[in-house]
Design a binder for these strands. Sequence first.
DNA 1: GGAAGAAATTTTGTATGCATAATACAGAAG
DNA 2: CTTCTGTATTATGCATACAAAATTTCTTCC
Lengths: 248, 248
Amino acid sequence: MHTKFLPRPAVSLVTTSRSPQAGAGSLPAGEPRLLHAEVVDRLRDRIVRGELAPETKLNERVLCQELGISRTPLREALKYLASEGLVQLLPNRGAVVAALEPGRIKQMFVVMGALEALAGELACANASDADIAEIRAMHYQMVAHYARGELADYFRYNQLIHMKLVESGGNGVLAQSYRSLNAHVKRARYMANLSKERWDKAVEEHEAILDALVKRDSTRLKALLQDHLGNKMVVVMEALAGNEPGKP
Amino acid sequence: MHTKFLPRPAVSLVTTSRSPQAGAGSLPAGEPRLLHAEVVDRLRDRIVRGELAPETKLNERVLCQELGISRTPLREALKYLASEGLVQLLPNRGAVVAALEPGRIKQMFVVMGALEALAGELACANASDADIAEIRAMHYQMVAHYARGELADYFRYNQLIHMKLVESGGNGVLAQSYRSLNAHVKRARYMANLSKERWDKAVEEHEAILDALVKRDSTRLKALLQDHLGNKMVVVMEALAGNEPGKP
DNA sequence: GGAAGAAATTTTGTATGCATAATACAGAAG
DNA sequence: CTTCTGTATTATGCATACAAAATTTCTTCC
């Protein structure tokens, strides 16, 4: 697998032009977006998508050139991502993309199970009818993509549904915790090749989940979510076991 | 309440002397401890203990002087703490200690409830006898401090017990998530004045919790932990409601 | 040829400098 | 006295400079 960075010609995030050498600012900017925050989002995205593979060394000079910024905001972003657990800081030796240890991912699934169960409970109790209608709409979108075999779009709606479900319980802390763990797990999922059978089953499970939510059947929803997540865990863990039997 | 910083004469964290102007390093240092990491720990501690009160403005120049470092590692530390949610970054306006919104704290208790329930389950299943013996020992220490009316020490052992219980389930991700939420909640608890009755009851609850753990009665332990946490929530929420009826 | 060690290079950690945004302050107008 | 406006001050965001550590490269010796 490639670990080399693409020689992108430093498209540069700098738009607000606060830098000493820069010439002219432009956008009126309703809300100032700081560089480190932008970099956090970009790097997190690249890590989650697997473009920055686990254990990739993050060379500051290279990243700075790619992003068209100086080391200061980059290093701030790395600290932020380290706190999220997506980056590991090695004192005096820089930063690397966090490893994807199967044991740790499994632990994350267990915790996410507890969070999703709680989320299901809260959603049944607190979700508005509009929330549920939105989830139903996303569900049908997802099923449509499934029918057409469009995996990427299926995944996207799948994620949207799970996030919306978690959010509609009205507990922002829960949503935040879930999102954070989910980012880690998503990294692993990019390796997992969904089998046709598993895909079929996952859609079935989603049908049942939607049904339980509509009926606000908390007990059943919790059980279904647990089951769904458990199955997903199996798939991901298998993929993970297959993709790194021995680290070279 | 004081929000002003103490004029500490810059005791300086700099020991490794990598700075341009610094004179001499000293400690052989088995493992290099970086400045930003040190600052993260210090600031987090001050925030959790309430020495840096909620919504306190964090002036970089002042903190730099207090810590005896330059702005670079300080700002890195602030980014890290922002990711933990203990600090809020205001673009172009610096950083403030995160507010203690009762609604949010309540949400945290709900999530911690789910995590503790899981922790209880895992502890019953996975804790070694040595783990349980350690918890028991800490429990008796705690009770001794309770008997002597030593609140601070009681709290310390209380925390140790809860953390050990969470850790002995063997799920590091769970422990990490719990620790993070706990830091936030601890901030609130520093305001809560435990009544004698509540204290008595809390110790009773702990007796029952220990008993359930020793017997590895997962179902009962979960229920007891939920109850215990729920009671603690009531106390904290009352204190929080009392201490900020109107923000000046 | 390979191991060991020294010098050169790169990389990281921290401090500092500079430009812009934000705030405090002063004075004028109402 | 309050409110507005323009200016001085301060604070923040980013870039850069420099020193120590780590890594690589080049010798040297066996």
